[in-house]
Design a protein around this nucleic acid. Sequence first.
DNA 1: TTTATATTTTAGCTTTGTCTAAAAATTAAT
DNA 2: ATTAATTTTTAGACAAAGCTAAAATATAAA
Lengths: 226, 226
Amino acid sequence: MKISVSKEDHLKAIFHLQQEQGLVTTNALASALRTRPASVTDMLKKLKEQKLLIYERYKGFRLNNEGKKAAVQIIRKHRLWEYFLVKKLQFGWDEVHEIAEELEHISSRQLIERLDSFLGFPETDPHGDPIPDSQGRLQVRRQLSLSELPLNKVAQVSGIASQTSEMLELLQYNHIGLGTRLEIRKKFPFDNSLEIKVRNRPPVTLSAQVAKNVLVKDDESMAEKR
Amino acid sequence: MKISVSKEDHLKAIFHLQQEQGLVTTNALASALRTRPASVTDMLKKLKEQKLLIYERYKGFRLNNEGKKAAVQIIRKHRLWEYFLVKKLQFGWDEVHEIAEELEHISSRQLIERLDSFLGFPETDPHGDPIPDSQGRLQVRRQLSLSELPLNKVAQVSGIASQTSEMLELLQYNHIGLGTRLEIRKKFPFDNSLEIKVRNRPPVTLSAQVAKNVLVKDDESMAEKR
DNA sequence: TTTATATTTTAGCTTTGTCTAAAAATTAAT
DNA sequence: ATTAATTTTTAGACAAAGCTAAAATATAAA
């Protein structure tokens, strides 16, 4: 049976959500997709029907192997297209998400393999997220949220968890982007906001909400990779 | 109001059909889109509603200016993507049609302008069809069908009118492709089939049906272009 | 110019994906 | 351990796009 665009959107969103929690909830998925819980329930039934996820009513759900495989392929397409848009078409890394959301649904397998080759088999997309290979292998990265980073420890921004354009705009305004090296100068327990220092720039303050969504790798873990 | 994927397909097909006949008929459109006449009628009402075409029931229809503009943009996207697939991703010119059918529906205007620039503003797609510019200007070409070409006059293949993969396969098998120079050696009035000679190859016979769909430019008209 | 044929449209149904409002189940709180 | 609050599901509607079968219109033929 065919996997429609909407089903692909659901699979991808479930995949991302279950990375963090094991089980995904109806409400979480609905809000991730900007849709209604009732609509999610409808879709869950179809995806279960198609044997793409494990689901029992009122009990939460998660992708099975089939579902994960499908989701990873969509993510692969999304990230390869983002790479293409930034590296070949000169888009900024904060402008490409919506376009890639459309391109990721183009179905041709051959297209994506050739695109991969054309791009030189990149390993990470412009936001630093790893690109699954054609076998669907997704290398896991040891990265942590900026809010978990210890004080005065330099780290490099390796990803942005929640890529709304508002968020990306805020980061850009503060000269924080992929690869930026930074450290936490001060933590304010009152609201968990952080004072951040980027080299050659005055310090800036980030809210807990933002910090939670900025992913970093500290130098050790970068070194480890080499 | 939004133009859905299906509406785009209809607009494009109507545009192509009305290039040949002035008015398009319900049946012709239905068979071009491999759908049913009743479905076409439904869609025509919606497109008329959206003021994209001129239509009165039982009387045929054609695109108005708005509709033409929309159709040309879709054709522009289709042809730019085809060019991309062939020139950058190394697809054969006979493999790209279906993929471009999907890619042409990606909506971002900015994407297509940057793609155009990335490709170096090509003027024709891999089948020799002209690519409309960003203003929607479509240069008209003086080309004729192979079946109208005079005997023993060398001409260059400039386009394929009906691009089914079966047709393209047949042509490829006979080493006829875009840019191939050929001439007609013999015409068989019995079934209007033609004996064709391509340089360095043994002569081959083409049916009238195929010949009708192979478009050529004779050397004069090529020269005229310079 | 009637009659026959072909084309087009209407009427009514189906599927997919979405929604709201109400009911059911689960979880939390007193 | 009940009651209260939250979450999830069901029931019922709707819009988009397509289909079949029947009716309406137009075109061709006798």
